[in-house]
Design a protein around this nucleic acid. Sequence first.
DNA 1: CTTGACATGTAACGAACGTTACATGTAACG
DNA 2: CGTTACATGTAACGTTCGTTACATGTCAAG
Lengths: 201, 201
Amino acid sequence: MQTRKEILTDELVGYLLEHGLSDLSLRPLADALGTSARLLIYHFESKEGLLTEVLDSLQTRLRQSFGNLVERREGRSTERPLKLFWDWAIADENYPYFKLLYELQILAVQNPAVYGPYLQRNASNWSELIGTALPEAERTPAMVTLLGAVFDGLFLELMSTGDRRRTTQAIQQFIRLVDEARGKRPVAQKKTTKASNTRGG
Amino acid sequence: MQTRKEILTDELVGYLLEHGLSDLSLRPLADALGTSARLLIYHFESKEGLLTEVLDSLQTRLRQSFGNLVERREGRSTERPLKLFWDWAIADENYPYFKLLYELQILAVQNPAVYGPYLQRNASNWSELIGTALPEAERTPAMVTLLGAVFDGLFLELMSTGDRRRTTQAIQQFIRLVDEARGKRPVAQKKTTKASNTRGG
DNA sequence: CTTGACATGTAACGAACGTTACATGTAACG
DNA sequence: CGTTACATGTAACGTTCGTTACATGTCAAG
């Protein structure tokens, strides 16, 4: 059975995904959920406690969704991991989560006293995760950093402009660049793509 | 002669660079500058007017610094423009400006009603600017977007970790990638890969 | 010396903030 | 029925917010 608090948390996640963090206020939040600021404090102790729990829940959901991605990936390993990750991140059901995490990231840079603690719990580090997709010989700090930055930068651009098409083409452009550089100075790799239709180039 | 308002603006810029935008409040701001909230409103009409003027001034300074960069660049055009731009952006005297502009960018994404107007005035668009450094044949939307994203993503990473060395190595890694890809398929003409289906949005 | 524009100090306004006090409702259990 | 634990409503607390009212300094021009 779901406790009242869990129900509230679910609704709170939805609200945060829509409204962001920077101007969060208890009373409008409570109004939107049909409850009262009194109740939110009652269940979460404080605004800080509320944010902690909601952001934890949010991260859990994202990890689950990522787990699904990894499962589904089994068997079609020909697809570029970076592109796969990108498609997953910009999917309608995951996009708002990333948007919120990037906001948290930036707020923590300028205001670490307030937002730092939440960020620490969210040591998501997708960069390293994507990095594991690289052949080990190419997994240098510079290359891993670059890979993460391409993702971050393109997601930022997507958030600002909403242009899914252009940002997706840009990430494919990057993949093409890596491939062509590899082609010139090949890296020991066992299984080249055998499919006649190399999707996404 | 500098009017009182201009003197104030200068001091305000310094304060904003240090404290960011998201939790700006008149009274602490006035205290830090040895003046009063009363005076700030007197000179700038409102908090919004203050932000507008200060961000305008901030942008002007950054443009001037960029002008200096372009001047100094004359004669040593062998250096990679992207690397040149990067070194300029992460220099101690420019870094805080970029940090603030990125904060503005993110805040505008989640809260366009409040921060959107300031952003519109700051249509800096360094991406396009860097794009002009590309040979014309490579100046596709995807490549320009990618270039801008690499810069954005690495700067974001620099803001979060403070690791100048690794982020700089990453941007050099990117430049190397482009060079190697060029080496394989010189700038001439290329056959386009099959169009891929991107998510609509 | 008076005037008038600019600048400033003190204090308050109404609103919103996170949080708390206190009373009340609800429902399971003895 | 009475007890008890969870849940909720109403109202207020003290603080901070952006902004304003009102009085007063400063100082060159007439």
